[in-house]
Design a binder for these strands. Structure first.
Lengths: 129, 129
DNA sequence: CTATATCATACCGATTTAGTATGAGTATAG
DNA sequence: CTATACTCATACTAAATCGGTATGATATAG
């Protein structure tokens, strides 16, 4: 079970933005400070923006700002937006025809619930230095 | 965050073996009952055997048996063997140079601990029908 | 107007997934 | 003893995903 670096980079950058809150920061700066490819981080922030976790400001002296206060933003929201889902197996959340008869789907169900509980229990401000 | 079907198939087959315990069952039968490709399941059982979760019996009327009683076998062992690791990010368990300064690694650490606790808390016999 | 930003899209090489193909080795039923 | 039923190793494949790059359009502060 592995999250991709998308989640790692995105979370790092979000923590960085939380430190700047309510100021905004451009991708350039975030990428430099967190040692991430600028272009890749641009795409990651496309996802975060469309998920309304972040607000963009175009043009000179533009950049990104957290859409909410750091103490309201849950890490689970960020991870879920970046990874697409938190479910450890496709069958655990979506409609699986054998759901009832399948013993292992019980495991994925329990696990997803736990992971979700854990990640939604962590607020962004608790990660500040 | 997704486990592969390797984990799903392996777990299903292990539950099936738990039902047969202490009898053994050939791959053919397991694959048919769980609707999994025979050849693919063969390879999955190679992993399980090398991890000593399962014992093989060669030749005619051979097959696989659980290496331990179903109430001693933890789901976490099975998943970890099949997935290679339970860590949600490479940096959470292995040596990461920025481990202390990295805010997000804190999240992966907490999460891995939770997932491990959850999966090792489930015994195979609790999944029997 | 111009420099600095976001933002969309398409491309790339590498790796992983899920599965197949081939065939060797092994033990047992009959 | 032999045919058969099984394990088991290795190599291959198509498709998807990953991490990243390239190109260029669009918006805006100053």
């Amino acid at each position: 079970m592995q999250f991709s670096t998308r989640a790692e980079y995105g979370l790092k950058a979000m923590v960085n933005l939380a430190e700047a809150y309510p100021e905004s920061r451009p991708i350039q700066q975030l990428a430099k400070e967190e040692r991430i490819s600028v272009k890749y981080l641009e795409r990651i922030f496309g996802i975060l923006r469309r998920s309304e976790l972040v607000v963009s400001h175009k043009g000179k002296s533009g950049g990104y700002t957290l859409a909410q206060k750091p103490n309201l933003l849950k890490v689970g929201e960020i991870i879920e937006a970046l990874e697409g889902t938190i479910a450890p197996m496709g069958c655990s959340s979506s409609a699986c025809s054998q759901k009832d008869s399948c013993a292992s789907s019980k495991v994925w169900g329990i696990l997803e619930k736990q992971v979700r509980k854990t990640l939604y229990g962590i607020k962004l401000n608790s990660l500040l230095k």
